[in-house]
Every structure is written in structure tokens, then in C-alpha cells.
Nucleic acid binder design. Structure first.
Length: 605
DNA sequence: ACCCCCTGCGCG
DNA sequence: AAAGCGCGCAGGGGGT
């Protein structure tokens, strides 16, 4: 059963039961306690909640201690569908892209509905307000004034019905429908993960910082001792030449411009101050500079102020942006959640009596390519545990060469010996090479490509089209930037088919894992498997339940009581199997997950 | 004071 | 010959 839902003033809300085709089945119902009404439906009717967005509805439910099993997120589905349909003008790439859809022209009613939905979205609270009830209420109250709940509900119902038609009209409705469902479920996971938080030990983090940087500076803008020391060494290394330049200040190692200038004054001209460039330079400033850059990076991105801002009550609670990346990967807002330095994983420690189940999909992208392309020889290599090792025989037994060849094929690399290795790849694994080559060609020609579940890459910009279109006069000289732009887009689409399909698999794995974990919870009789509470309360009540606490492209972390670790690990491997079957159907390609049960994230793999 | 773009680097 | 892909964030430096 589908039920449309929007929040109203205070605790209230509006509900409307829908038919399977999205049409209204019953009149609109107003409830005083929305969370209670939702909980009641969850007990008996296996509803799929149809709501404008998780930000508008689910956060509020979670705050009230109510989880749901399934939803249709209208905003996320909209992004998938309009992403697909925006590509129509660009022309579809055969084999990898869809055909034009028979989507009905948006009539004014739908257009109005969409405008209304947008207005509501603009007022949605961010996940960050989740942990701050006072702010949350204030924002929510503000949102209520701008958009009439009844009008919003009607808009949700209309758009949802239209979306079901758009999905059914897809070239592969089952897969595209799975994508919309998984994306929606992903937003449930995202909100729940923000609430749960990644266990984070501030004292461990602080200890690492102090060890490397020296004690925390008294004043915020101040350089920690070790950084100040290194900055002085860098400046000193340039001092001799600088002394002859009147009015010159000490070189600031944070300023690429000053560094380039200072190096040039000493006769060293560089294209940039990147690590890779600096590494090979012979100058007394380089050694302290490289160390400075590494430590300064840590201090500015994940230093004490980060700790103050992002860690509360032993938990790091970033906001995840589902589908925030064109490829369908998640993005995050605040705290650089998806760029946590490996070094700081030392600070991610399970609660007492709990463990972290860390699972990582091994060599996901090349395996995805093997499954996508249906390359028999390649798929055979992908049946085992180490794909690159299996491929190595084709490259004179050198695993490293096999890896370079694969990465070059997926990224469009051609430097160094890549060209030679690609030739081998093309010869031994023609279907796999052909798949990414076709995607690259489609991109170069301005067409779009799609992931295995039908996520579509953006069409080229107007700028790109203007730049790359054939000149009206065939004798006219072509802009040299045209070829460059064309090849750049080719690399993008080449990578998109792999990265986006890997994201499809990872997303389906993640939401399947959520479902598997819910089974454990209900088996254990820990509540109904749906209702969370503040995690402290759960610890006290029944020993706790497994919680997804982190997701990073091809890696998940489950935080759970020690005695549930085995069950959680089994859930992970079942989820991977489910994802492989749902996304790729029958395939001989294996998608192994390396799973570790650890106290500390840094101890995984 | 603020905004915007660039550079550089962390993660996958 | 050359430019393998995708992000978020901080700081510098120029603009207003």
C-alpha cells in the first residue's frame, strides 16, 4: 500500500492512501500526531510512504522515534527522471543509453505542483538541525507558513503518479524502478546514519593532533608549534635571496603564489606547488615544505576546530547528500565526512561492549565493468578474490601492470606505459575494452550514457556544444580547445558508466543491508525493528541493535553489540549477494566484500 | 566586510 | 603529444 504524507503545523500531518498506480484511493486524512499515525501503519500495512523529501518528513519522524521500512522520495525520483529526460535533446548512445521516453508533456497542473514542491524543499531543515531540536522546531514552523500542507499533499500525489508513469515508460522499467526505490531507501539510511553518528573519540583525535602538531594553540588563528617551526624553516631557506630584495616578507608556505615566486628567484621555475611537482625539486626549502603541507592539511581540515564543530557526545554526525554526485555516489555536507584521513580512523572506536563491522567491496569498479560488458574472459578473471592477480597472466605475470591497464581503461588514462598496456587489454578482453571505448565515443560526440540501473549522465553544456560543433565553413580552422573538450567529456562518460554502475551496486547493497539488519532486530525481539530511540536509551533497554553508521562509496560500517557481530557480518554478505543479483542478474562475476569485526576503524584491513 | 574563483589535497 | 574520473573543504588572492 502506498500512502502519501506531508507534515502540517505542530505534530500534525496529512495522509492519503493511494492506489498502486498512484491515484488517490481514499480521501485526505488529517492526523494530530503524524508520528503515531505512521507508526500505526508500519505495524500492519507494509506501507510505502510517498513524501516530498526525507528532509521534510523523515527527520521529524526519526525525532519522534519512528522509523519506516519503505518510501518513495518524490524529490529524488524527480532528479533521476529529469536527469534522464534532459538527455533526450542530446541524443542517446546506442547500447549504453536509453531511447526517448513517451513522458507526457508537463501540463500546467504538474508544473504548478513542481513549483510548490520546490518552495517546500527550500524551507526544509538540514540534517544538521537533527541534533538540535530547538533550531529544528524554528525552521519547521517557518516552513509551515510558506506552503499550505493540503496543496503540498496534492502536488505530491500528482507528481508521484506522473513519476510512476515515467518509470514504467523507461526502456528498462524494472531496473529504473529499482533505482528509484533504492535511491529513496538510501535517503532513509542517510537520515538514520546522521542520527546514529559515527563513534568518535575526541581524546584519541586530540592525542594524534598533539603528537604531530604540538599542543593545541591558545588562540584560534595561531599556528601549532610544529607548523610554526616548519614555516620558519621554509622561510629561512629562502632568506638569503630574499635579503637582496628590499621590502620582501618571509615566504608564507600556505601561499602557492609566494612559493612559486621565491623558488623562481632561486632559479627554479615550477608549474605548480603540487606535491608531485615539488617532490623532485632540489632546494633546501622543499623538505620542510613537504612536511609543512602534510601537517597543515591535517590541522586545517581535521584539526581541533573540526573536533569542536563536528563531534558531540562521542559521535560524528555528518549530513549525507544522497545522489549528490552525478554518478549517483553520495556527497556529504559538513565535516568532510567522505574524506576522513586514514590516519584519523584511529579515533573511530566502537562503544564499550560494541564492535564495528567494516565491510569493503574489493576492486568494485573493474568487477562492475566485467559484469556490465559481459566479457567472458574478463568475467572469469573476476570470479576470484584478487581480480588484478587473475589478470596478471595477460601482462607477463605483473599484477601492477594489470592494475594500471584497468585504471587507465576506466579513467581514460594514456600517460606513461598505459597505451601499451591498453593495447594488451583490448586484445585479451575485447568486450570490456569495447564497452568503455563506446562510452568514451558517446561522450566525445556529445551523447549521454547511462549506468546499469539507468542513471543518466548530464548532457554537455551549451558552451561545450558551441565549442565542439563543426564549423559552418568546412575550411575554417577548428578551435584547438574543441578536441580537448571533446576528449575530456569522453573521459567523463567513459568513467561514468563504471563509477555510476558501481554506485548502483553499492546503493542496492546498502539498502539491502538495512533490510537484513532489520530482520536481525526483529528476530532478536528488539522492538519492532523499526522504532529507534536515542541510542543511549537503546543501550539501556535491550543491549542494543545493529546500526549503519557510515557509508563511503564502496564501504560500510555497522556499529553493533559484540554478540551480534556475526549476524551483522552475515547480513553484509547476504546484502552483497542480493545486490549482485538485483543489479546485474545472473553473472559469473563475483563481488566479494572484505569484512572485518574490529573495535577501531583503523584496524580494519 | 563579503563573495567568488583558484590551488591544493584528503577520500573513493 | 597528452589532460586518466568523481567529490568537499580550507586558504590565498582578487574583486566589489
Amino acid at each position: 500500500m502506498r500512502v502519501a504524507v506531508v507534515p502540517g503545523p505542530g505534530e500534525s500531518g496529512l495522509l492519503r492512501e493511494l492506489r498502486d498506480d498512484g491515484g488517490p484511493a481514499r480521501p485526505v486524512v488529517r492526523v494530530d500526531d503524524l508520528a503515531a499515525a505512521v507508526r500505526e501503519y508500519e505495524r500492519s500495512d507494509e506501507p510505502r510512504w510517498v513524501w516530498p523529501s526525507a528532509a521534510l518528513v523523515y527527520q521529524r519522524l526519526l525525532q519522534a522515534g519512528v522509523r519506516v521500512a519503505r518510501c518513495h522520495d518524490v524529490a529524488l525520483a524527480e532528479a533521476l527522471i529529469s536527469g534522464r529526460d534532459a538527455a533526450l535533446g542530446a541524443g542517446a548512445a546506442p547500447g549504453t543509453a536509453g531511447t526517448p521516453m513517451g513522458a507526457p508533456a508537463p501540463d500546467t497542473l504538474l508544473a504548478d505542483a513542481r513549483a510548490l514542491l520546490k518552495a517546500a524543499e527550500a524551507n526544509a531543515p538540514s540534517s544538521q538541525e537533527l541534533g538540535q531540536p530547538v533550531l529544528f522546531d524554528a525552521v519547521e514552523a517557518g516552513a509551515g507558513e510558506h506552503v499550505d500542507p493540503r496543496a503540498l499533499l496534492d502536488a505530491v500525489v500528482e507528481i508521484h503518479a506522473d513519476q510512476l508513469r515515467c518509470i514504467a515508460a523507461d526502456e528498462h522499467p524494472d531496473k529504473f524502478g529499482l533505482l528509484a526505490t533504492a535511491e529513496s531507501a538510501g535517503s532513509l539510511v542517510a537520515a538514520e546514519m546522521t542520527l546514529a553518528g559515527l563513534p568518535w573519540r575526541p581524546e584519541v583525535h586530540d592525542g594524534l593532533l598533539t603528537e604531530m602538531l604540538g599542543p593545541r594553540p591558545k588562540l584560534p588563528g595561531q599556528r601549532p608549534a610544529r607548523l610554526a617551526e616548519l614555516a620558519d624553516q621554509v622561510a629561512a631557506a629562502f632568506a638569503k635571496t630574499r635579503a637582496q630584495m628590499p621590502g620582501s616578507r618571509p615566504v608564507n608556505p600556505d601561499s602557492p603564489a609566494q612559493l612559486l615566486q621565491a623558488l623562481a628567484a632561486d632559479g627554479i621555475r615550477l608549474s605548480s606547488t603540487r606535491l608531485a611537482v615539488l617532490k623532485d625539486v632540489d632546494h633546501p626549502a622543499i623538505a620542510p615544505l613537504l612536511e609543512y603541507k602534510e601537517l597543515a592539511r591535517l590541522a586545517s581540515a581535521f584539526g581541533w576546530s573540526w573536533l569542536d564543530t563536528w563531534v558531540r557526545d562521542g559521535k560524528f554526525r555528518p549530513e549525507y547528500v544522497v545522489g549528490g554526485v552525478v554518478s549517483g555516489r553520495w556527497a556529504s555536507r559538513g565535516g568532510g565526512a567522505l574524506q576522513i584521513p586514514r590516519l584519523l580512523r584511529r579515533a573511530v572506536v566502537a562503544d564499550p561492549g560494541w564492535v564495528l563491522v567494516v565491510a569493503d567491496a574489493a576492486q568494485l569498479e573493474p568487477r562492475v565493468l566485467a559484469a556490465l560488458a559481459g566479457d567472458r574472459a574478463f568475467a572469469d578473471a573476476a570470479m576470484g578474490g584478487d581480480l588484478y592477480a587473475e589478470l596478471a597472466t595477460a601482462f607477463g605475470g605483473e599484477r601492477a601492470k594489470a592494475k594500471v591497464a584497468m585504471l587507465s581503461a576506466m579513467y581514460g588514462g594514456a600517460g606513461g606505459e598505459a597505451g601499451q598496456l591498453l593495447a594488451i587489454l583490448r586484445q585479451r578482453f575485447p568486450a570490456a575494452s569495447g564497452y568503455v571505448e563506446a562510452a568514451a565515443r558517446a561522450g566525445e560526440e556529445g551523447r549521454v550514457v547511462r549506468s546499469v540501473l539507468g542513471r543518466t549522465c548530464p548532457p554537455p553544456s551549451a558552451n561545450w556544444r558551441a565549442l565542439t560543433e563543426d564549423p559552418a565553413d568546412p575550411d575554417a580552422e577548428r578551435d584547438p580547445r574543441a578536441g580537448q573538450a571533446s576528449r575530456a567529456r569522453g573521459r567523463f562518460t567513459r568513467n561514468f558508466v563504471v563509477q555510476a554502475s558501481a554506485a548502483d551496486w553499492a546503493l542496492v547493497m546498502l539498502v539491502s543491508l538495512r533490510a537484513e539488519l532489520a530482520k536481525i532486530i526483529s528476530r532478536n525481539g528488539a522492538g519492532d525493528g523499526l522504532s529507534p530511540g536515542p541510542s543511549a536509551a537503546i543501550h539501556d533497554r535491550d543491549g542494543g541493535r545493529p546500526e549503519l553508521v557510515f557509508f563511503q562509496h564502496d564501504e560500510v560500517i555497522v556499529h553493533c553489540p559484540q554478540d551480534q557481530a556475526d549476524a551483522a557480518a552475515e547480513a553484509v554478505s547476504r546484502a552483497a549477494a542480493v545486490a549482485s543479483r538485483l543489479v546485474f542478474g545472473p553473472t559469473r562475476v563475483a563481488f566479494p566484500l572484505s569484512t572485518a569485526v574490529v573495535d577501531c576503524y583503523a584496524d580494519a584491513k
